[in-house]
Design a protein around this nucleic acid. Structure first.
Lengths: 195, 195, 195, 195
DNA sequence: CCCTAAACGAGACGGTACGTCATGTCTTCGT
DNA sequence: ACGAAGACATGACGTACCGTCTCGTTTAGGG
């Protein structure tokens, strides 16, 4: 802890093996059964190497998920706010249902971020905040273009669009499908659309 | 599990001590730091006694929470659906913020119910299903009375009312306050109220 | 460490398995290669059980050696002090050469008692002091019977009889054989025998 | 081992720093607490540099001790065998009691030489054999001069003179003082002096 | 007097063992 | 006879060193 390790000398092969192993194990056995020891064994790596670069198994999984999911961060902008929202919500649902990213993502948001405050911050930073920012940008553009009323509280709108997904996530219910998301988008937009 | 223990001979004093100890520990140190050993020590009870009647620390906490919170389950019915919803949502938020029930409740819904499928079922049964049923009953009464349109999908409505709370819960944001809940109720009702 | 464990509830079968395993491993692989983990695995016992009752692998080996060797502690008394000394020294040499007790005994006296002061004290108590006391008793009887001069310094005599064995032990030389011990006894007795 | 390093290019400053650090650490914390990593850190040297020139921490300490102690190897020859023996035994005791050389010397003879056969050989070569040879030379001269009987077994005599020191060393007893050594010399010489 | 091969410091790496903790089961003893 | 006390096997934790292995950087010798 005294000397932070030197990033330059880091062995990229080990890093990859660790991230891959952690996601594999999470998919195979579930998040609870993932252990630092198990990751080390699967990756052919020493435990020390894991602890040198990460603080906990949660931090490993977080990096693995960020690594695997960061391609899909963008919020589409076709000019049609309803279509874009629908596309974006669909993307989010897919992330949670993807066999590779779903389990670890749920574990991070539901389990780790309520056990480990430090990790919770990193999770917010890396997985949540940028998406919220993008959402707000897109919504403000829609306001500028007159598709959405100007004085609406975007925090509430965010909760209304994403709340149903998280509600069902927490209660272990099936996540919204295509039609269901359509209803959500329609209901909410109905309340905040111009004229 | 081989010999299901005899409920009649159960020592009520031990049961109380265990439930009380588990909530105290959870409040003091956080859910992650609660252990069966810790509960046993605090309650002055043998570990065996805990394992005889519960399957895990989660099951103990669940019973403790049910025990402590079941008074407030009822959905008000004043005839004014908006006021009743607001009151009910406020109740829910309070449960999550209460210093005694908040931490264990969040832990059960966010952590345990995604680690232990068996416990997840019990949590739904004891904490969630009855509330959903009551919600549905109240909503249907509102439909009968013509306050709400008849052909609305109540599952979606449920998600819309409770989603924002869960969304903020998962992301560790401040839960909705009185005004915020008012907005939610207004927005959603606006979409499903009889013209 | 807070609560010393309760001796009465101790599992004798585990204790035996641990002591046996430790001597076997020491004989097979040498003292340096004995580990607490190895003993636990061989004995089919948890590490915790070892740490509950002993402080280190050295303490385990000490008890095992004491257990295995305590039959041979007696100093013979036939009335002939030369013969008795020769018999006793032979016994000691045999202990150091015995395939079962030799390696651990050397390790305790040479290695552990110079690394771990606490253990050193126990080793002295259990393996050394009583033998020195018995030696002194026998010598005093020989003095009473007039076989040995009365004013000799018994500490020096002890060193003279046992010193050669330890000298050769430390320097990894062959231990004295029958004849060699005879010479030692003769030489030393020659200096302290009654006129 | 593949490419034996080039002695000529060796950095003498590093060598000195390593030897000094190893003795300092041994004196400060005891032999058991000396580690290659610790020596490297204290000496401001890389572990690789230590492993390039020595095989183990024991080998480092051995060289350090040889370096520090080799001045005092000589066996005095004043013509008076009793006085010379007393002087020599006193020198040996002093080596073992010296605050700088005592701990590492004991560790080498008692601990390492019974854990590491390769090192044991080097220890004998560098620390023991030459002294035994010198002892034998001096004794043979005494025989030539008629001070000691001709047919005595010098191996036994060696054991008799040095045995007491090693005996007390092994058992963690105070080493012989001036008077004590005098008694030893007198007793043993009494048995082998010309009539 | 530069050039180059080496030895060097730094320290990451795969390992092994450490000593501790909590789990869930099993045993003993006191009441 | 119950039940608290707690010993037990299991398995993961996070740490300390081991001895090996790159990395760039001195540094010393032979051309």
């Amino acid at each position: 802890m005294v000397n932070p390790p030197n990033e330059q000398r880091r062995n990229e092969k080990s890093r990859r093996a660790i991230l891959d192993a952690s996601l594999e194990l999470c998919t195979e056995k579930g998040y609870a059964a993932v252990t630092v020891e198990g990751i080390a064994a699967r990756a052919g790596v020493s435990k020390k190497t894991i602890y040198r670069w990460w603080q906990s198994k949660g931090a490993v999984i977080l990096e693995a998920v960020v690594d695997a999911a960061d391609a899909s961060t963008d919020f589409p902008d076709t000019g049609d706010i309803a279509a874009d929202l629908h596309a974006q919500l669909t993307q989010v649902v897919r992330l949670f249902e993807d066999p590779r990213s779903g389990r670890p993502l749920r574990a991070l948001l539901l389990i780790e971020s309520h056990q480990d405050p430090g990790l919770a911050g990193q999770i917010r930073e890396l997985l949540v905040d940028s998406r919220i920012a993008t959402f707000n940008q897109r919504m403000r553009r829609a306001q500028d273009e007159g598709q959405i009323v100007a004085d609406v509280d975007l925090d509430v709108v965010l909760d209304q669009f994403y709340g149903p997904i998280y509600h069902r996530l927490v209660l272990n219910m099936d996540l919204p499908d295509h039609d269901y998301l359509g209803k959500i988008v329609d209901y909410v937009l109905a309340g905040i659309t111009q004229g």
